[in-house]
Amino acid sequence: MAVNLGYKEYFKSDALPLMWCAGCGNGIILRAITEALSDLHIPPHQVVISTGIGCWGKADDYMKTHAFHGSHGRALAFGTGIKLGNPDLHVIALMGDGDALAIGGNHFIHAARRNIDITAIISNNFNYGMTGGQYSPTTPLSSSTTTSPAGVAEPGFDVCALSETCGANYVARTTAYHVTQLKRFITAALLKQGFSMVEVINTCPTHFGRRNIPGDTVSMMKYLKDITVSKAGYEKLDEADKEKYLVTGELVNRERPDYLSVYREMNPGGPETDRGEGH
């Protein structure tokens, strides 16, 4: 039954206004997710949103799909059980940069390595916004945060390179500014069997922006444009300049068999075995 449901079938409009700060891009990502689900005609009851803790971890409260809001860093671990408990579900893990890559880093690399059929959407705003703007594993080297007043002494992760190395089937990077690309990548990630990861470089005008980017909410959004470059544009850059930019685009798109497919092939099971319909 293919009915065009519209994003409002997934988005809890009566929960507006959103709790996020003015100029925070989380709402933009949420809109893209709900639009993508609508375009794909996935019924809300076949979707589970698994969130971690942090600003982006509040997203589940705006969804009308099934949802799980657990502990800090564990959205993928809970999501692994949710998916294996009912393989027909579309499991979407929403994590911030600290949630996915610091406290949840172990689950992240192993979910990608297993290539379990989950879509991870990482809102990367370069800091811990919820707790007051401390530095995270993606904060650029030397940036000012509340726990690095003299600058961060640690280089940040390349989330996409990490995902690729670990074994994810689909890896893409975009920003909260590039909204059509954002929706396109999320759609592709949802369609991909196996682990898919969309990194969304996001705004945090309240904390990261205030300390590192002169200006207002608009300046913060322009910063996302300024620090990113397309794959084609990236290739044309001098080696020295490449370090200054984050490349956007579909960076990995491959067809390794996902965890459950391999597991079921090796463990065929009996008649009551739930194999899922895949998608």
């Binding site: 589970v48 698994s50 799980f68 657990g70 502990s71 564990r74 671990a77 809970f78 999501g79 692994t80 059980g81 949710i82 998916k83 294996l84 408990g85 009912n86 579900l89 172990n106 689950h107 690399i109 192993h110």
Partner: peptide, 16 residues
């Protein structure tokens, strides 16, 4: 990958 993930996974699967 660890016991934190183990209990998380069984909670998730039970909810499924």
């Amino acid at each position: 990958e660890d016991e934190i993930g183990s209990i998380a996974a069984i909670i998730g699967a039970s909810l499924s």
